[in-house]
Simulated assay, not measured.
Amino acid sequence: MLTVETRPAVSPFEAKGMDTTALRGAFLGQGLFENGEIRLIYSHYDRMIVGGAVPAGDTLTLDQVKECGTASLLDRRELGVVNVGGPGTVTAAGQSYAMEKGDVLYLGRGLGPVTFAGQGRFYLTSAPAHASLPARLIRLAEAKNFTTGAAETANHRTIYQFIHPEVMESCQLVLGYTKFHGGSVWNTMPAHLHDRRMEAYFYFDLAPEARVFHMMGEPSETRHLVVANEEAVLSPPWSIHCGAGTGSYTFVWAMAGDNVDYKDVEMVAMGDLR
């Protein structure tokens, strides 16, 4: 079963007047993981798609998504798959990829239908693609990583880059995830902006009772979303993005837009946040 929800773009002027319900309806992705289903959100921000596929021991096939206007999703798109569950298999163009938790799979334009099987819980991100590039399965040991922050500021973390220019070539999708060291809960601090691309956050490995307070909005007009396990946030190019959790968690970051330069950001001083 395939379900697709379309999210129109929201300007910063509209966001200023939104209450909690409206903010969550525009920017928070809930209920993406349901046994036996593929659930997608089609965003007008850089035409990014985020979603989840849960075969639950059976098989699911992702092919035509009407909102994309093509016979098959990958006719004019690329796809990033992150397994956040048990062992599973993803198959495309006759090639099967066995994925453990934490593995990332890149599928390029033109590979046709994609089938998911096993006990995996597959987080999906997709962006328009201008070229056909080779598929690649990237395991944690193959990702580029660096550690930043400090325990004293509660943001000691390691950033793993998978679909990234220093690891492999993609068209515009850039993806990785961030893991925290003991006692650290703040992500992406200090906050920043990147006006040339949007970003989607996906939080996982939170305890059922834990929450992440995800900060968003213009630097002078910040807002927040309270996010639970396996929920996503659509972060517009005009918005800051950072957050703090009530316990340990991991988050996937995925970007699409004008370039693939991870460092193309504008830092926001803490004193400028309101």
Rank of each mutant, 00 (worst) to 15 (best):
A207E: 12
V114R: 01
A154H: 14
T250S: 15
L137H: 05
Y160P: 02
R47Y: 11
A228L: 01
Q64V: 04
D261Y: 08
V185W: 10
T61P: 10
S235M: 02
K179H: 05
G182N: 14
T158G: 05
H192L: 00
F213C: 12
T115V: 01
T61I: 04
Y262V: 13
H164P: 02
A154V: 10
H192I: 00
G29C: 09
P128H: 04
A256Q: 02
M267F: 12
E14G: 11
V82Q: 13
G85V: 03
P12D: 10
G36W: 01
L175W: 00
L225G: 04
N155C: 14
G271I: 01
N83H: 04
T3G: 10
R39K: 15
M267W: 15
S239F: 03
G80H: 11
D75I: 05
F146E: 15
H241M: 00
G112P: 11
M18F: 15
G36E: 05
A92P: 10
I41E: 14
Y123D: 01
E221N: 13
I240W: 06
V265R: 14
R77K: 05
G94F: 06
E152F: 04
T70S: 15
L73G: 06
L111P: 00
D264L: 02
G69A: 08
A127N: 12
A117E: 13
Y45E: 15
Y262E: 14
D205P: 04
S170T: 15
R47L: 10
E100G: 15
P8V: 09
F122Q: 04
G88Q: 08
S132K: 13
F116S: 03
F13R: 14
M18V: 07
S170Q: 08
E100T: 07
S248A: 14
I240L: 12
V114W: 06
A135D: 14
G108I: 03
A228K: 15
M1C: 08
G80K: 09
I138H: 00
M216E: 04
K263V: 04
H194W: 03
V185P: 02
V90R: 05
F27S: 09
I41S: 02
L137D: 07
I163S: 02
Y249D: 06
S239Y: 03
R39L: 09
L234G: 07
A228W: 00
V212G: 08
T178Q: 06
Q172Y: 10
L107Y: 02
H192M: 01
R139P: 02
R274H: 15
G69M: 05
K16S: 11
L173H: 08
V233T: 12
I49G: 05
M270Y: 12
Y123G: 04
A151G: 11
V185L: 10
T153Y: 05
